[in-house]
Design a protein around this nucleic acid. Structure first.
Lengths: 348, 348
DNA sequence: CTGTTAGCGCCTTCAT
DNA sequence: ATGAAGGCGCTAACAG
């Protein structure tokens, strides 16, 4: 035997890292480390007297808890990975914003991940972030690799899926009925009397939620007896540019169109701005509808008719569901339909 | 004495968490845990034979390393907190995007934090995220609470400040010379022959970088002998709405303005769209200049003249600086001026 | 190249 | 209400 614990001397720490530890605080306050821990985590279990002494020491030494150590010991680091398809799409940003503000206020941190719409990357990312012993996870959509779903289900901590609704959700979800939303705009266009209606999208090969909206749109036209199954799209992701491009393409191939239903407001905005340039009158010559409810839509001329989805609120709600579970409160429901609203403005 | 280590039996783990551990893999492969660790982290230090056996076991068991444990043991968690003032400002989002893609590709994760432009919140956030033993930190601007600066300097790991340039930077920084950029647009307006020029901003009380641009603008006018010190602003943060509002206010108070220099493209866009609505001709009746280079600017009528700042690239560069340091490569410089470019379009 | 030993800093369990 | 002991899962340091 070399040294028993009594003999272990004030070893200089492994590494140069000389941060103040709970031990230092304990010594300073003349208590055991566990007491410091209690003062920090469950103050009600410590007498006022000790609590004050410890608080003092914490202040004096500038102690900041090592959350990694805490996480290892208690299996759970107040970190919530949020995994979205892309950070260049405003929608996800707005949802993340809602999530982040809500979680941060509750003392949790958001770990950001993006998958570029690739389910394999998503699965790999899941594996990697679960290595951080997060308290919960938020991911996008209901479609995932089988392996990821299995792992997440076995994991046993709260999981929230956003943007979509359905019974196949892993644990909880917050989103909208995409097909319904698509049908909603289609209906509106029909009610306005338009018949030659096209759906225009971008990057739909990867964005299956846009495809769901298209399906809703198509079904609606069909049930209305309108023989119009026009779809224009481009490969590239959504942008004003992409919007202009599909707009021009549709116009060329189908000059007699009466209305265009865009997969989102970015595209619709690009189209309206190009229409202005070309002197095409909206909605006189052509009606334009969007999806999302970006603030830009209110400022365009004409103002954009759209299906507004409360993105920020969706994020807030997702975070709330997660927090409810983490704090042991049971939420009213595990699936919340955040809804959408037809915002009729000038462009239709 | 109760049990020495030989006697410690296959205790069921503390908690329900029955994830596969490095021990399980080691047992399965018939090696010591450290060998598994080496195969995963420094494979070149392990013989091919053992490496294969271990890889096999990892696969078979579906082992995913616990990064928290690894982080505790090696003091460093491949997490990089990125702290920005706001997630509702597109600029920061674009920078974060660049950071995130670059770091994720290198196996690091971004931990998101926002301060709402409050330096106290920033300092508190710093404390809290440093608790995750991050590998490095990225924060916004050069102005921070004294306490935060001290802690970060003592911390000894790479710190990158973005959006701004200056000698007072904590460690490394990537950004633009805001005053110069402001001067650049002012000069352009002067060259175009405009003399009654106003600067218009939003939320400038909090956004001191916008104030720096205004200073650059003001100095430029002054040196040119133009007696025109007009500043219009509103409290609320930047948005199309805010842009429209200050635009209208300026127009009312100062109907003879020849040019407006907006603190950013969001405001400028709001102004242009309102001008279109009111039939005010740009640049015939009034010239408008912006700052940032948002893609929206290219689509407006008229197209927006602006000072373009490569935001995404700034993020990429910030991440690169950090990675260079982390991987022991020395970067060419600790301060990189990402530059800006005057993009002359139709609005001036 | 491989293994042994001893923590990383905190918290859980159990005793007092 | 407080403390002692031990472990969370992994890796640095030091043998061999």
């Amino acid at each position: 035997m070399t040294t028993n614990k009594a003999g272990i001397r004030e070893r200089r720490r492994h590494r140069g890292d000389n941060r103040v530890t709970i031990q230092d605080v304990a010594k300073q306050a003349g208590v055991a480390p566990i007491t410091v821990s209690r003062v920090l985590n469950t103050p009600e279990k410590v007498s006022v007297k000790l609590r004050e002494r410890v608080d003092h020491a914490v202040q004096a030494l500038g102690y900041v808890p090592n959350l990694i150590a805490g996480g290892l010991a208690s299996a759970g680091t107040r970190v919530i990975p949020v995994v979205v398809p892309s950070l260049s799409i405003l929608t996800f940003i707005e949802v993340i914003h809602g999530i982040q503000e809500t979680l941060e206020a509750a003392g949790y941190q958001v770990l950001l991940g993006s998958t570029d719409f690739d389910l394999d990357r998503e699965a790999a990312l899941m594996d990697s972030v679960l290595g951080y012993s997060p308290s919960g996870v938020i991911l996008t959509g209901l479609q995932h690799r089988e392996s990821a779903v299995r792992r997440l289900k076995a994991w046993g901590r709260p999981v929230v899926e956003i943007m979509e609704l359905g019974d196949t959700c892993i644990d909880m979800c917050v989103g909208v009925q995409n097909a319904e939303a698509g049908a909603c705009m289609a209906n509106h266009l029909l009610e306005r009397g338009y018949r030659r209606i096209a759906f225009l999208g971008a990057g739909m090969a990867r964005d299956y939620r846009a495809r769901q909206r298209f399906e809703g749109h198509r079904e609606t036209l069909k049930s209305a007896g309108v023989e119009c199954d026009l779809l224009f799209q481009c490969e590239e992701p959504s942008s004003y540019d992409a919007g202009r491009n599909v707009f021009l393409e549709a116009l060329e191939k189908c000059p007699d169109l009466e209305a265009m239903h865009f997969a989102n407001d970015n595209l619709a905005a690009g189209a309206i701005m190009e229409a202005n340039r070309q002197g095409i009158r909206i909605p006189g010559d052509l009606a334009i509808g969007g999806y999302l409810g970006l603030s830009l839509g209110e400022h365009l001329s004409p103002r954009l008719t759209t299906v507004t989805v409360p993105r920020y609120e969706m994020g807030v709600e997702a975070a709330r569901l997660l927090l409810a579970r983490l704090e042991g409160r049971s939420s009213l429901s595990d699936q919340v339909d955040i809804g959408y609203e037809l915002t009729v403005r000038e462009s239709t």
